[in-house]
C-alpha cells in the first residue's frame, strides 16, 4: 500500500508529508513533521495532551487520521506564540505556576485558546467543563483555571 501524500497548512506554513492510512495526525505531527509539542498520553481521546486545532476546531490529534489533514489548516502549540512574544495564556500559565511537570501544558494551552476565542469571558464553571478533556495529574487544576481567568481578562482589556 503506497503512502498518502498529504498537503496541509501547519501554523501558517504549507507542509507536505507522506503517511500511511493508519497513522494518526498526532503520529504525523510528531514523527513526520518533528512537531513534538502535542503529546501522546492515552491515544484514546481521554487526556487531551495531543490537542490541536483543525480548521478552527479543537480536536484530539490522536483521534484524527493523518490523511484527513489533507487540505486543512492545523494549529499546534508550536504556533501559539507570536515570534518571541508569548501568547497571554502562555504568559499567565508561567506567572500563575499553572504547570508542574508540563506534559499536559501544550494541550491545555491549545484548548484554552480555543475557549477564549469562542467565549472571551467564561465563568469558572465554563472553563472547567471546557477543559474537562484535558487531564492534569500534578496541579489539581486550581492554578490552571486561575491562569485562564486572568488571561481572559487581559485579552478582553487588550
Amino acid at each position: 500500500m503506497a503512502k498518502h501524500h498529504v498537503s496541509a497548512t501547519v501554523n501558517g506554513d504549507a507542509v507536505e508529508f507522506l503517511c500511511e492510512s493508519e497513522q494518526t495526525l498526532l503520529d504525523c505531527l510528531r514523527d513526520e513533521l518533528d512537531l513534538t509539542g502535542a503529546k501522546e498520553g492515552c491515544s484514546s481521546g481521554d487526556c487531551g495532551a495531543c490537542s490541536v486545532m483543525v480548521d478552527g476546531r479543537l480536536v484530539c490529534s490522536c483521534l484524527v487520521l493523518g490523511v484527513e489533514a489533507s487540505g486543512k489548516s492545523i494549529e499546534t502549540i508550536e504556533g501559539l506564540s507570536d515570534g518571541e512574544k508569548l501568547h497571554p495564556l502562555q504568559q499567565k500559565f508561567l506567572e500563575h505556576a499553572a504547570l508542574q511537570c508540563g506534559i499536559c501544558t501544550p494541550g491545555f494551552l491549545v484548548a484554552s485558546k480555543a475557549l477564549l476565542e469562542k467565549h472571551p469571558n467564561p465563568t469558572e464553571t465554563e472553563i472547567r467543563y471546557w477543559l474537562a478533556g484535558n487531564l492534569c495529574r500534578c496541579t489539581g487544576y486550581d492554578k490552571i483555571i486561575r491562569a485562564v481567568i486572568d488571561a481572559a481578562a487581559e485579552m478582553r482589556g487588550a
Binding site: 481521546g45 476546531r57 480536536v59 483521534l63 475557549l115 471546557w130 474537562a132 478533556g133
Partner: peptide, 9 residues
Amino acid sequence: IGSTQVQGR
C-alpha cells in the same frame, strides 16, 4: 459524548 475535543469530531 466525550470532551470538547471529541465533540468537535
